[in-house]
Simulated scan of single mutants.
Amino acid sequence: MTARLETKTALVTGAGSGIGRSVAESFAREGARVIFSDRDRAAAESAAEAWPTAIAIELDISDEQSVAHAFEKLEADGFAPDVVVANAGVQLFGHDAKVADLDLDVWKRTIDINLTGTFLTVKHAVRSMLGRGGSIILTGSPTGLNGEGQDFTAYSSSKAGIHGLGRTVAAAYASEGIRVNTVVPGYTETPLVTAISGDEAARAAIVSRIPLGRAGQASDVEGIMIYLASDESSFATGALFRVDGGMTTL
């Protein structure tokens, strides 16, 4: 069977752990040359070392100089990506809160990394893809669609902004052959959410709101990410793909 991504070069942000690592590894299994990027260089290198066609880079998505330099260097080295997964982000448990209780610094840090960082990743991905096309995939959240994140004002707002960014960029660059789609994972047990997964009552409460009756795993989004990275999805752009166990149907 032909590997579905064997002609692709893919950059995944936040690939040192969690969903980013799982997706980057799945791309490598499907034959892509994969750039594992993370603010934590050691984590990126550890994740990439098992894959002969992979490389690792340090990338701080909240710093435009870091993002711009990364895309310039990748192009110079023959690794200009055909696929970019803008996945890196934070959720500041214990600090993010309902709006009346939210500190401005927590708001700014969350928006700087999640929304501005995604904007910068998409901006330079589009610049890199002009004249040749490509696929950009954003990582959204149910908290940007419904009231699931009522105690996480900054995070929920950042994800809603990402959903809007994806639609806007998809419409702006469809004529250039650049597709932009957003994947919306549900509650997914990764290092990002240990504050929930390590609390039996909190975990049970959130799983009870998932119609399929279980927590998500990072591997649950691999299939849709591979589809959107591949030419099989050539007519898909500007869309939200929910992989949330039915959470947002309630």
Rank of each mutant, 00 (worst) to 15 (best):
107 W>I: 07
108 K>A: 12
108 K>H: 14
108 K>M: 13
108 K>N: 14
109 R>S: 12
109 R>T: 10
109 R>Q: 15
110 T>I: 09
111 I>T: 13
112 D>G: 08
112 D>Y: 09
113 I>F: 11
113 I>N: 11
113 I>G: 10
113 I>Y: 12
116 T>I: 12
117 G>Y: 04
118 T>Y: 12
118 T>H: 10
118 T>C: 12
119 F>N: 04
119 F>Y: 15
120 L>I: 09
121 T>S: 15
121 T>V: 13
121 T>M: 14
121 T>R: 14
122 V>C: 11
124 H>T: 06
125 A>H: 04
126 V>T: 11
126 V>S: 01
126 V>N: 06
126 V>K: 02
127 R>S: 11
128 S>A: 15
128 S>C: 15
129 M>V: 05
129 M>G: 04
130 L>F: 07
130 L>C: 05
131 G>I: 13
131 G>S: 10
132 R>D: 03
132 R>T: 02
132 R>K: 10
132 R>S: 14
133 G>S: 10
133 G>E: 07
133 G>C: 12
133 G>P: 01
133 G>T: 07
133 G>D: 07
134 G>C: 06
135 S>H: 01
135 S>V: 06
136 I>E: 08
136 I>H: 04
137 I>N: 05
138 L>A: 07
138 L>I: 12
139 T>A: 01
140 G>Q: 01
140 G>L: 06
140 G>A: 13
141 S>R: 03
141 S>V: 05
142 P>F: 04
142 P>E: 01
142 P>Y: 05
143 T>M: 08
143 T>C: 08
144 G>K: 04
144 G>A: 07
146 N>F: 09
146 N>P: 02
146 N>D: 14
146 N>G: 00
146 N>Y: 01
147 G>H: 01
148 E>N: 02
148 E>Y: 06
148 E>K: 00
149 G>W: 05
149 G>V: 04
152 F>T: 08
154 A>P: 09
155 Y>S: 04
155 Y>P: 12
155 Y>R: 11
156 S>K: 04
157 S>G: 15
157 S>A: 15
159 K>Q: 13
159 K>Y: 09
159 K>D: 10
160 A>T: 09
160 A>R: 14
160 A>I: 01
162 I>G: 05
162 I>A: 10
163 H>R: 06
163 H>I: 15
164 G>T: 08
164 G>A: 15
166 G>K: 10
168 T>R: 00
168 T>E: 09
168 T>H: 12
168 T>C: 05
169 V>I: 03
169 V>M: 06
169 V>Y: 02
169 V>W: 00
170 A>N: 00
170 A>V: 02
171 A>M: 05
172 A>F: 05
172 A>H: 01
173 Y>Q: 05
173 Y>C: 00
173 Y>K: 03
173 Y>L: 06
174 A>H: 01
174 A>G: 14
174 A>L: 02
175 S>L: 07
